[in-house]
Every structure is written in C-alpha cells, then in structure tokens.
Simulated scan of single mutants.
Amino acid sequence: MGDWPAVAKVINERMTTLGLTQKRLAEVSRVSTATLRQIQQGQDKNRQPAVLTAISRALGFPDSYLQEVADKGRAPAVRSDEPAAVAELRDQLADLRERVAAIESRLELIRSD
C-alpha cells in the first residue's frame, strides 16, 4: 500500500517544472506510458520498487525519493544544508538524462533501418 495521490502530485509537479511530457518521461525512465499514466492519476496499485526508482532517477530525484513519498504520504524534506546549486545540478542532470535518452532512441531507429 502507498499514498499514490501524493506520489502523483510529486511526479506531476516535477514534470511541469522540468517541462517533461508523459511520453518523454516514459522513454527516459523506461516505464510504460500506461503504468506512468496510472501512477500520475494516483491509482492505488502494488508497484515494484524498481518502477519508482526508475521514475525518481528520470526526474532527477534520489533513487528512493518516490518510494519515501509513497510510504510517508509527503515529499521527503530537502536538506537545509544542501545549496541551491545542488538543486540546479539535479535539474541539469535530469535534462542531460533526457537528451541522452533521445539520442539513444534515435540511434535505435537508425539501427533498425
């Protein structure tokens, strides 16, 4: 069991912040769009920890971030000693992950031709 509405809220807010579409997040996280859609809608289902880990990574969060949200019903507190530059680096890392995933997708298309 978990607090799936809280997980949905965190994911949807982060996607908006990063300018990510559902399709793009699915590609980057390698989670199906159907599963991602269910999570974004807060549907209560038993999820494999690897799914939440993959989405957390794709959104630039620590691996266990979304699992903590599911367990506690709220986003983990941001460490007060973490500089704003670290948050910016997390956002940049998420952007780089997205770009690498796009490159990988294009390479797969080229290879399949």
Rank of each mutant, 00 (worst) to 15 (best):
17 T>M: 09
73 G>E: 01
83 P>K: 09
34 A>Q: 15
77 A>F: 09
36 L>T: 10
84 A>H: 05
69 V>P: 00
108 E>P: 05
36 L>H: 11
57 R>K: 14
16 T>K: 11
44 D>E: 05
101 A>C: 09
23 K>I: 10
110 I>G: 06
102 A>D: 13
57 R>N: 11
9 K>R: 06
23 K>V: 12
37 R>F: 12
67 Q>W: 12
99 R>H: 09
8 A>H: 09
7 V>K: 05
64 S>K: 06
102 A>T: 15
107 L>G: 15
111 R>P: 08
80 S>E: 14
50 A>K: 13
95 D>Q: 07
9 K>T: 11
82 E>W: 04
50 A>N: 05
30 R>D: 15
91 D>W: 04
82 E>A: 01
109 L>I: 09
45 K>F: 06
38 Q>N: 15
71 D>W: 07
87 A>P: 00
17 T>Y: 06
15 M>V: 00
39 I>H: 07
107 L>W: 13
99 R>I: 10
28 V>A: 09
85 A>L: 05
100 V>S: 08
91 D>H: 11
80 S>N: 10
17 T>V: 15
43 Q>W: 12
40 Q>C: 15
34 A>W: 14
66 L>G: 00
14 R>S: 10
2 G>M: 11
55 I>D: 02
70 A>G: 02
46 N>E: 13
56 S>G: 03
102 A>Q: 12
107 L>A: 14
49 P>E: 00
98 E>G: 13
40 Q>W: 01
59 L>T: 01
94 A>H: 04
3 D>R: 03
69 V>Y: 02
104 E>Q: 14
12 N>G: 03
99 R>G: 04
15 M>F: 00
86 V>N: 11
35 T>H: 12
96 L>C: 02
42 G>K: 10
29 S>C: 05
78 V>E: 15
110 I>H: 13
68 E>Y: 01
10 V>N: 03
50 A>E: 07
5 P>H: 04
81 D>R: 02
73 G>N: 02
17 T>I: 07
33 T>E: 08
28 V>K: 09
14 R>Q: 07
91 D>I: 11
49 P>M: 08
37 R>C: 03
62 P>N: 08
107 L>E: 15
26 A>M: 13
77 A>L: 02
